[in-house]
Design a protein around this nucleic acid. Sequence first.
DNA 1: TTTTTGTGTAAGAAAATATAACATATTATT
DNA 2: AATAATATGTTATATTTTCTTACACAAAAA
Lengths: 133, 133
Amino acid sequence: MSSNIRRSMPLFPIGIVMQLTELSARQIRYYEEHGLISPARTEGNRRLFSFNDVDRLLEIKELIEQGVNLAGIKQIFAARQPTTPPDEPVAEKVKKPDLTDEELRKLLRAELIQAGRFNRASLRQGDMARFFH
Amino acid sequence: MSSNIRRSMPLFPIGIVMQLTELSARQIRYYEEHGLISPARTEGNRRLFSFNDVDRLLEIKELIEQGVNLAGIKQIFAARQPTTPPDEPVAEKVKKPDLTDEELRKLLRAELIQAGRFNRASLRQGDMARFFH
DNA sequence: TTTTTGTGTAAGAAAATATAACATATTATT
DNA sequence: AATAATATGTTATATTTTCTTACACAAAAA
């Protein structure tokens, strides 16, 4: 549930993502240009990628290796994310608030510290353990 | 088990770690200078922090807030990590190989892709899901 | 009181990343 | 076949981020 927060938190610079995915910066930027990913930006305009973004890039890479072109990949992604059907509109009031990147990180920080209160002294386990199984 | 790999993989630049921990760059570097953390470096000498590193910084921060000085924190950490006692030496052959950062990332990549073969098409779940619960 | 500790701040250098433009091989289209 | 579109490489220049080093200083310790 709140792992969505973690999965979508902008954390990685493009250099790391290049290594993680073995894609070139050119490729990554090109895929963004065509709307396949939408990494966040720092104040200074540097891209920051989330786990979700990296995940997506790995999918893109595999599909491309299988001969799918960008248009195809776009369709595949679009089909996957079933946008709220027009006959079942979401009341504006109910929508989750959009958080800024900093707010997101603030939330994570809070979560980590909370977890720490439980684990650290007793279990001798680091906060970020929640990130793994 | 292999989550150790993920937990220790150098991923984050200092800017992100500052936000995650609410520590200043000065503080983070100072703690490194005093051996409390040992972030990896890029080829170009930029620090790269792992989940473990962030974890540790959060611990340091809490201890400092509780009035413990760096010497004390160092002791606490030292006591925690029981280095192989001198009378029970580890045969050089048995030691785990030291992996370079790039090898680490390569491993993760392989893991992610492997996971993908299972999940993606069928479960519609991203690779990085393995990072979360 | 003097020293040590922990942190702030500033300067200058180097690394990483940004955008834009041009090149080009491969694939589609006409 | 000729032409156009797609996907990526490469290069140039600008900007941001991080690095180290040095100096300052308040708070704590000696």
